[in-house]
């Protein structure tokens, strides 16, 4: 068995040279169709005005959240967070509802429109190369990275490494490790010399979005009951008022009409 309890990536934007070796390695390793990709490069492009320029790129793929929203949103359990890190997808279970795509705050899972119910697979995303990590190899993207912008290992060790790099070059890096707490923590950790938002990363709190929605969803029954009680109260009040009014106008209403009106109100 592996000694690694929690596999994770550490990406350093200051080291990335946008060579795309990771993209090619991933596509070959995972036999990705020629019109698809599991990795993309986002970034700030060339910012500024000649000659005062800045540029930064980021290798973007699944963040492998500690507590993934995709898995939470999936009605059939096609997403599983493996205890040692990777968030994995089972195409056999997938019904193609695409709830996971809406749930993921990073916009990672993508739908394969070329495939249908017949082919079975709908969603594609980075898998952390379980076929490699299970035999002790690094994921394909990490193994080939010529500048070590991507490294792989135990999450706790990488976090320490990330903080050590920031401490060693405080003027270079932003003092934050993205993914340490974001969305409840991710297995893809990022340090950068430009704001994370500019790299295309969403600003997220430490609570996974799904917990927020669970909080809301968890409140729906009490809320519904409470609302029902309120409405019942309103109804009862209205009835009572109505009764009073009826009593006042008794001389106008016939005796037979009353029960029928009461039923309608209830």
């Amino acid at each position: 068995m592996s000694e690694i309890k929690q596999h994770a990536f550490l990406f350093d934007a200051a080291r990335c040279i946008d060579c795309r070796a990771c993209m090619v390695a991933c596509s070959v390793e995972n036999k990705i169709p020629m019109d698809k990709t599991r990795i993309w490069v986002s970034g700030i492009g060339v910012k500024g005005e000649y000659p005062n320029l800045e540029s930064a790129t980021m290798v973007y793929h699944c963040m492998h959240c500690e507590d993934p929203d995709c898995a939470s949103a999936c009605p059939v359990g096609a997403w599983v967070k493996r205890s040692d890190g990777p968030v994995l997808y089972d195409s056999k279970l997938c019904i193609g509802c695409r709830y996971c795509m809406n749930a993921c705050p990073f916009g990672v899972p993508h739908y394969d429109w070329d495939k249908g119910l017949i082919d079975g697979a709908f969603i594609d995303k980075c898998s952390m190369c379980p076929q490699r990590i299970d035999i002790g190899l690094e994921p394909a993207c990490v193994a080939t990275c010529p500048t070590d912008a991507l490294v792989f290992g135990e999450r706790a060790d990488l976090l320490k490494d990330a903080h050590a790099r920031i401490a060693a070059h405080p003027y270079r890096y932003i003092d934050h490790v993205y993914g340490e707490t974001e969305n409840g923590g991710t297995s893809y950790l990022i340090i950068s010399h430009v704001p994370f938002k500019e790299l295309g990363l969403p600003e997220l709190g430490p609570t996974p979005l799904k917990d927020i929605s669970e909080l809301i969803m968890g409140g729906t029954i009490p809320f519904a009951l409470g609302w029902a009680a309120v409405l019942s109260g309103v109804a009862a009040g209205a009835y009572a008022l109505d009764k009073k009014k009826e009593a006042k106008d008794k001389h106008v209403e016939t005796q037979e009409e009353l029960p029928a009106k009461t039923e309608a109100t209830q």
Binding site: C19, V24, V28, A140, A143
Partner: peptide, 25 residues
């Protein structure tokens, strides 16, 4: 051939390959 890896024993790759090396197949 289904995948190419940088040879860690070679002083020019040290385990890594660039995008061209990766796409060699």
């Amino acid at each position: 051939v289904v995948k190419l890896e940088g040879n860690p024993d070679h002083p020019h790759s040290k385990g890594n390959l660039c995008p061209r090396g990766q796409s060699g197949l």
